[in-house]
Design a protein around this nucleic acid. Structure first.
Lengths: 142, 142
DNA sequence: GCCGGTCAGTTACATCCGCAACAATTAAAC
DNA sequence: GTTTAATTGTTGCGGATGTAACTGACCGGC
């Protein structure tokens, strides 16, 4: 019984995720010079509305230094603004600017199109069971 | 129709792969001080037998500089040796040392156990269809 | 009040990564 | 046979990342 590397689930997961992420990254890297973490922060704000950096860390399991740098990069690009809370001055609420919303809508359309492209090799039923399995695996590993 | 980030397949893939990789990394990082790319190179040699660095790049879609550095790290740890080909002196064949084989067998057992652990939340049928879908997605993205 | 503990977010430093340029070797063109 | 192109792998350098230490701010016991 020898070990078959290309069937090892963590390996397969990593290969698929890497290939997809690298491929999709072209959309936002070329058009807006954004990194993956910046994309993620932008989409958290675009999808969920305003929230703190810490909340993004928790939702996406991204390290706080990564988020901190992504937030600054998006701030420099004028895609988001920070608002210090009056109740607790440690907390900064992040929200998209008009420009940020515009970029988000553009990238959202690109994301939907990209998802249609790559899932075209799967049936709708497969896609939803794949989603469910990925969620289970993530919980199982965390 | 708003965009649901936690259902976006590239995002889900990345979250699951990241969680699993980070979790599993504990095994080889703590015991042998190895990085992810070093683990991958070791397993390619352990599973397929001796091969060149370029071949590992092709099989695993890893950048050649990453492989080059991982090979040196494994060489310093005395887990592999390089043999310059007599026919083409550009080519170096990589092979595991006795020590490298021992480490590989240990990590192989850990990998099998880890895969059993995380896949315990899925049925055997789900696992094989998941593998097939991940392969399709990787090809679809590349 | 005041001091230790905690929490949000940033910075410092060391490491890792990717692109591009490179050296060395072989193959191809002619 | 010499020049040019292609290939195997390495290195320099700027940029990205993670760990740990830090700042500033709130909260608790006393």
């Amino acid at each position: 019984m020898s070990f078959v590397l290309p069937q090892f689930l963590p390996y397969l997961l990593n290969q698929a995720a890497e290939a997809v992420s690298r491929d999709f990254q072209g959309y936002y890297r070329d058009r807006y010079g954004m990194l993956r973490t910046e994309w993620r922060v932008l989409f958290h704000l675009g999808c969920y509305g305003e929230m703190t950096a810490g909340r993004i860390c928790g939702l996406a399991s991204i390290h706080k230094t990564k988020v901190s740098r992504a937030v600054r990069a998006l701030e420099v690009k004028r895609y988001l603004r920070r608002t210090t809370s009056a109740q607790d001055r440690r907390v900064e609420t992040l929200s998209l600017t008009t420009s940020g919303h515009r970029v988000f809508r553009d990238l959202q359309a690109a994301a939907e199109q990209y998802e249609r492209d790559i899932t075209s090799v799967l049936s709708p039923g497969e896609v939803s069971s794949l989603r469910a399995m990925l969620v289970k695996l993530e919980k199982s590993a965390g």
